[in-house]
C-alpha cells in the first residue's frame, strides 16, 4: 500500500511539473518567437511590458482570459466549444511518453524521468497527432463560416497527407533502435545520434513535422490574406487561446521528438540530462522560427505535390535502403 501511494505521489509530482513547465515554456516560446522574428525583420518586437517585453506573455494571458467568449449564430454549439480543447489536450498528452532524462534515484528508488514509458510510445504519439486533426476540422466546420470551413478542410487534408511521410520517415529509426519505446530509442543512440546515420529521415521528419503543426511555409489552414485566420476565425477569448497554446505546445513536442529521435535525447557532456534536453528543444524551436522568418508560404498544389510526390517516395526508398544495410 505504501509503495502504491508513493508511486502515485511521484506520478502526480511528475505530471504537475511537466504540465507547469510546458505551459510556462509555451508562453515564453511565443515571446521568443515574436522577439526573434522581429530581429530577423529588423524590428524591435514586444518591448513595452517589462524589460525586453518579458511580461508580454502574462499580459497576453490576462487579455485572453478576460475577453468575451463569443459563439457565432448558427454554430454547432457543443462541437464549437469542444474543438479547441481537443487541439490542446492531444498536444499535451504527447509529453506523457517523452523522456526528459536518465533515471533518477531518490530514497533508494529508481525514478525514470518519463511519465509513462510505453513500449509503443512512438505509435502513441502518432495516434495523438492524428487525433489533433479533429480539433482543426471540427472547429472549422462548427463555426458556420466559409473561411473557417475552408481552413478546416485544408487543415484536415494537409495533416492527413503529411502524417504518412511523418510516420514513414521514422520507420528506419525504429528499425535501428529495435523498439517503439522512446526511452529505448534514446538508449540506442549512446554511441552516436541517429542524425548522423539517418540524415534523409531527419530532413523528411522535420519538414513533415512543420507541415503537421501548420508552421509558416505550410500554414495554409490559417492563411491570413486568403482566409482571415482560417479555422479559428470565429473564436475569441480563451478558446482562441487554447488553439494558440496547442500550436506552441505542438512546437515543443516537435522539438522534443527531434531531440529524442535524432539528436540523442537527454545525453550530452558536462550538463545534466534535462538541461541538455531543454537546450536541444530550444535549438529546434529557434530553427523553426528562423525558417518561418525566411520562407514564403507554399501554394496549395505545391504543398500536396511536396508531400505525396517527394517526401513519401523518398521515405519509402530510405526504408528499403536502411533495411538492406541492416541485413548486410
Amino acid at each position: 500500500m505504501l509503495t502504491w501511494s508513493l508511486g502515485f505521489l511521484i506520478l502526480m509530482v511528475k505530471l504537475g511539473a511537466v504540465l507547469l513547465f510546458l505551459l510556462l515554456a509555451a508562453a515564453y516560446l511565443v515571446w521568443l518567437e515574436r522577439k526573434f522574428l522581429a530581429r530577423l525583420q529588423v524590428r524591435y518586437g514586444p518591448n513595452r511590458a517589462g524589460k525586453y517585453g518579458l511580461l508580454q506573455p502574462i499580459a497576453d494571458m490576462i487579455k485572453m482570459l478576460t475577453k468575451e467568449d463569443t459563439i457565432p449564430e448558427g454554430a454547432d454549439r457543443v462541437i464549437f466549444l469542444l474543438a479547441p480543447a481537443v487541439v490542446t489536450v492531444t498536444a499535451l498528452l504527447m509529453f506523457a511518453v517523452i523522456p526528459f532524462g536518465g533515471d533518477l534515484s531518490f530514497l533508494g528508488k529508481r525514478i525514470p524521468m518519463v511519465i509513462a514509458d510505453l513500449n509503443i510510445g512512438l505509435l502513441f504519439v502518432f495516434a495523438l497527432s492524428s487525433l489533433g486533426v479533429y480539433g482543426i476540422a471540427l472547429g472549422g466546420w462548427a463555426s458556420n463560416s466559409k473561411y473557417s470551413l475552408l481552413g478546416g478542410i485544408r487543415g484536415a487534408a494537409q495533416m492527413i497527407s503529411y502524417e504518412l511521410s511523418l510516420g514513414l520517415s521514422l520507420v528506419p529509426v525504429v528499425m535501428l533502435a529495435g523498439s517503439f519505446s522512446l526511452v529505448d530509442i534514446v538508449r540506442a543512440q549512446e554511441a552516436y545520434p541517429f542524425i548522423l546515420v539517418q540524415p534523409l529521415a531527419f530532413v523528411i521528419f522535420v519538414i513533415s513535422a512543420m507541415a503537421e503543426s501548420k508552421r509558416i511555409p505550410f500554414d495554409l489552414p490559417e492563411a491570413e490574406n486568403e482566409l482571415g485566420a482560417g479555422y479559428h476565425t470565429e473564436y475569441s477569448g480563451i478558446r482562441f487561446g487554447l488553439f494558440f497554446l496547442g500550436e506552441y505546445v505542438n512546437m515543443q513536442v516537435l522539438g522534443a521528438l527531434v531531440a529524442v529521435l535524432f539528436l540523442g535525447g537527454w545525453s550530452g557532456p558536462f550538463l545534466s540530462g534535462p538541461a541538455w534536453f531543454c537546450i536541444k528543444i530550444l535549438v529546434v524551436a529557434l530553427v523553426m522560427i528562423w525558417i518561418r522568418g525566411t520562407l514564403p508560404r507554399l501554394r496549395y498544389d505545391q504543398l500536396m505535390a511536396l508531400g505525396w510526390k517527394v517526401l513519401i517516395p523518398l521515405a519509402l526508398v530510405n526504408i528499403v535502403v536502411t533495411g538492406a544495410v541492416i541485413l548486410i
Binding site: L123, S130, L131, V133, A137, W141, L149, G152, A156, I160
Partner: peptide
Amino acid sequence: AVLQILVYAGAVMVLFLFVIML
C-alpha cells in the same frame, strides 16, 4: 489498441468527416 485509434479513429474517421463536410 493504438492501431485501432491510429487507423480507425485517426485516419478513416477523418476521411468520413471530410466527406461529410465537403
